[in-house]
């Protein structure tokens, strides 16, 4: 089961956050912001642990805990999509790819959306909700 989604811009700023379940932890908006930028930094630092001197790869992709998993996906341009879900959830990677598609279509192609700013696009909300429902169905 999906818990929540974060979209983080290339500077580490949280530009979107949404919970999909009542069981998702509710934090204050400041805490979400702090969490996003901290994760952004940790991910950048974790890249330095990579044994191969690769320009590619973007550090931590998945964190597993007893109570939830966190899956991250980063585009070549540096935008990060992070989902949290209950531990048994499958296909999180595909879900994030799908969210990236939606972001490319319904956020960036909206001429009134300003790059790197918080996402307030109605179509994106609608399409995201559909993608979430589809994912929940495929997992049940």
């Amino acid at each position: 089961m999906l818990l929540s989604l974060f979209v983080v811009n290339k500077a580490g700023g949280l530009i979107y956050q949404q919970n999909f379940s009542d069981t998702a932890a509710k934090l204050s908006s400041n805490d979400y912001l702090r969490l996003a930028s901290t994760f952004h930094s940790i991910q950048a630092i974790s890249r330095q642990l990579s044994p191969a001197h690769s320009r590619f790869g973007f550090g931590i992709e998945r964190i597993e805990t007893d109570t939830f998993v966190l899956q991250a996906f980063q585009s070549q341009t540096g935008v990060k999509f992070v989902a949290t879900a209950s531990p048994e959830t499958k296909n999180l990677k595909n879900f994030l790819r799908r969210v990236y598609d939606l972001y490319a279509d319904y956020v960036l192609k909206n001429p009134f959306y300003e790059l790197d700013m918080p996402i307030r696009c109605e179509l994106w909300e609608v399409m995201l909700q559909l993608a979430v429902e589809e994912h929940q169905r495929s997992n049940s």
Binding site: F56, V79, R97, Y100, D101, A104, L108, K109
Partner: peptide, 16 residues
């Protein structure tokens, strides 16, 4: 271009 790149990366399957 700065917007289209994301569409390109998302839809083309080009990674690195």
């Amino acid at each position: 271009g700065i917007r289209l790149i994301e569409d390109f990366l998302a839809k083309s399957g080009i990674s690195n």
